[in-house]
Design a protein around this nucleic acid. Structure first.
Lengths: 153, 153
DNA sequence: TTGATATCATTTGCATACGAATGAATTTGC
DNA sequence: GCAAATTCATTCGTATGCAAATGATATCAA
């Protein structure tokens, strides 16, 4: 392609912007890819737990026993999704469920001893996952990126 | 909890950083939330197509007829995922499939006339989706963010 | 108090997303 | 030119993710 063609494209782009919708430059597309990359890094370090499962355990470690719904709010999962995640953690003995004494609608979730051991053991690996995910950026870039990303989330 | 306890926790945090692993500050967690928000914005503007389906149509518009596998590479989807997406687009008459004349392994995918109409009609909405997703940021912040996000993806 | 609302949890249905296994067809390496 | 390796596509199984509908319980308001 000649320089003339490049120039023509630039001129056209200023007028008819339907011509240059580039999927690979859209924030949603790149966000999806960045997320995919992170999940892949996560899986390489923590093979037997998914990021949502890890999030549930990490948050239970923070807040202690909570209702399934409340936990979902804390880790940004809707009720249907969190149920599946908790069911699988329960099947593996990492969390235990109990009924709320007063409010009979609520299902309380808590870490088991095994679940607590697991999350404590995994946190160092999670730190490394964060580090590796951000590895393409310098320290200053990381600070900038995290600030802007937080605004979008 | 007393002020003494707070002080103790701060002191401990400086030594044993296992104490302050905060899920909500980890890049993976925020990336997942940002992606969720984008998908939600997408759905509000384009209700009858998912972001992956849109991506497939938009990329076919760019490159014309390609193999299913190649399309998957271009839109960052593995073979199993892209098959499902294409199957659903085909069922709706937006893409058509044909066999590669020479290489019999390949399944060629292309837009139908209806699919071409659809993607042309949707691109303005997609621009608005990008705009709304990035709305929390200033123009300068957007430029910075996109540069850094691209490095991570 | 009771009727309307709201909340919590579950279920169903659909759509990504990916690892692993399989089979068909092609390309490579010797 | 042929065996080995690779590529393309499919299928299966598992795990999010969310909308919508449902049932049980709790709260609010007249």
């Amino acid at each position: 392609m000649s320089d003339g063609d490049n120039l023509l494209k630039l001129v056209e782009a200023e007028e008819a912007d339907d011509q240059d919708y580039l999927l690979q430059e859209q924030v949603g597309f790149i966000l999806r890819k960045a997320h995919q990359r992170h999940v892949s890094i996560f899986a390489a370090h923590i093979g037997d737990l998914t990021p949502p499962q890890f999030a549930a355990l990490a948050k239970l470690r923070d807040v202690g026993e909570t209702s399934q719904n409340q936990l979902g709010t804390l880790i940004a999962m809707d009720a249907a999704t969190v149920k599946g995640v908790i069911d699988r953690l329960k099947a593996r003995g990492l969390v235990e469920l109990s009924k709320h004494e007063v409010d009979k609608r609520r299902l309380l979730v808590n870490l088991t001893a095994e679940g607590r051991d697991a999350i404590e053991r995994l946190i160092p690996l999670a730190r490394e996952i964060t580090r590796e995910t951000l590895a393409p950026l310098s320290a200053k870039e990381i600070a900038t990126f995290m600030k802007l990303l937080a605004k979008l989330a």
